[in-house]
Design a protein around this nucleic acid. Structure first.
Lengths: 259, 259
DNA sequence: TTCGCTGTGTTCGTTATCGTACATAGTTGT
DNA sequence: ACAACTATGTACGATAACGAACACAGCGAA
């Protein structure tokens, strides 16, 4: 396995596959089959991992610090984030779901690293219908919950609450409390104006919940954010915890039925 | 197989399993295994098919005319539609995805009928890893596209455009151009005020695209609606067509890889 | 040091939608 | 025919977010 360190990664930590939650809970036997084909790659900020309608060649298992947004870009150029994927998940579910492509773009929102795997290798393992399949389908259901709740949140909640949700979702996928992220970028993700983000972020800063300057956001008071955020955050978080237990899950297919 | 006719169904058509698009494209061999356990049931308007967090016992394959909304209900009672399921799909994907429950409620939005199947029977077939699994996973991906696009639409498009999208999605799942649906109900689905729907529907009626009175909506000019609707409708429709071809798909697992 | 770029702050008029309140018109049951 | 109810219509101020324009501030490069 080749290890490539990113210039953008300040701490120069050499990540292990187990840093990705899905790889971590795979049955040992499955993990060992995939291990030789896992390759650590850098994920620079702004890189398009896959584009709407383009066939996927690889899947990616991000490690903490790397966050990838799935966003839909409209014909007029406006965009909206559908879901976010970090070290709790995998990029490229369209592969095993059967479509091969999605209508959304995957864009690196926070630079970091990910373990890359050839789609073909993943599919071979998926088709053994063991622990990997069970796990990936459960992950996909969690992702669907995130998408649903994004729709609900877009409909009903204020920009300020959505920003809180977005910050908390990001924080959960990082190893620090500092985000490297301009307001412009956040606005693109949330599908709102940059000025709107400035105003909402200003309010959060005034309350002492965050501090930021020129693309560097530090979360100072996470409980404070959690007090302000809408229920959408907790709904999604709870569903991830339910569907993807931190401990290893059974590789028996029967688990699908009785869980 | 027992046939129960709904009092609400005006035409008294006896539906066949093949009226559901998924059942229709199953490999013959698979279909014949499921056939004895399919039961036609009525789906009255307003019935809750499954509730957030409650374990599913059955899955349902609606036939044309029956439409079920998946909606999220917030703690304050406000709601928003996540996706809609008709004769193109199946209700109860949480069963085979492994979660067993979802965070949304499934509510009959247009009365009709559906073929009901015990979850256990579906799972036995799913775990044969043949045509049914391939098909259901592809359907799930299409459903995810619908959810995503709902999020995008909620973010960026006007109520009038969303109403057009909603009408077209409904129309696609009906066998007529008449919907039985009050503006109040539509408002709950779209997560907006009833007055807003009145206004938007009034505009559509003024343009001669629809006519309505007291819960009966007739679409007079479908191309007119399609000219007015945002891109979200077409994106979803195209993805359903791509993922779920009308003709029977291969039962070979390999299809998952090369499609 | 100075320039120029990028990121943030601010303002102002506009618009869509909201919340509330109430009016009117079909429809149903007696 | 009448009452009661349900569905739709309308109006009005409030509000959140928009679009556009511009000011300013930090920071790196020449």
């Amino acid at each position: 396995m080749t290890t490539i360190l990113s210039d953008l990664e300040p701490q120069k930590i050499v990540h292990q596959p187990k840093d990705n939650a899905l790889l971590n809970v795979l049955p040992t036997e499955v993990f060992e089959r995939l291990y030789p084909d896992l390759m650590l790659v850098t994920m620079p900020l702004g890189k398009v991992i896959y584009e709407s309608g383009v066939e996927l060649e690889y899947v990616y298992f991000p490690v903490p610090g790397c966050i990838v947004s799935m966003l839909y870009v409209m014909t007029d150029g406006a965009s909206a984030e559908i879901a976010v994927v970090g070290n709790e998940g995998i990029l490229g579910i369209a592969l095993f779901m059967g479509g091969g492509t999605t209508t959304s773009r995957a864009l690196v929102q926070s630079a970091g690293q990910a373990f890359r795997l050839k789609g073909k290798i993943l599919m071979e393992e998926f088709e053994r219908h063991g622990g990997l399949q069970t796990l990936l389908l459960r992950y996909t259901q969690a992702l669907m919950t995130q998408m649903s709740q994004t729709a609900v949140c877009n409909r009903h909640h204020s920009l300020e609450q959505q920003l809180c949700r977005w910050l908390l979702l990001s924080l959960d996928r990082l190893s620090t409390n500092k985000l490297t992220m301009t307001q412009e970028l956040i606005a693109n993700m949330l599908g709102v104006r940059r000025e709107g983000v400035t105003e909402a972020a200003g309010k959060l800063q005034a309350r002492g919940l965050i501090s930021y300057s020129r693309g560097r956001i530090t979360v100072l008071d996470r409980p404070g954010l959690e007090a302000l955020v809408c229920e959408c955050y907790a709904v999604v978080k709870k569903e991830y915890d339910r569907l993807l237990p931190a401990k290893r899950i059974s590789s028996a297919g029967a688990c699908v039925v009785d869980c």
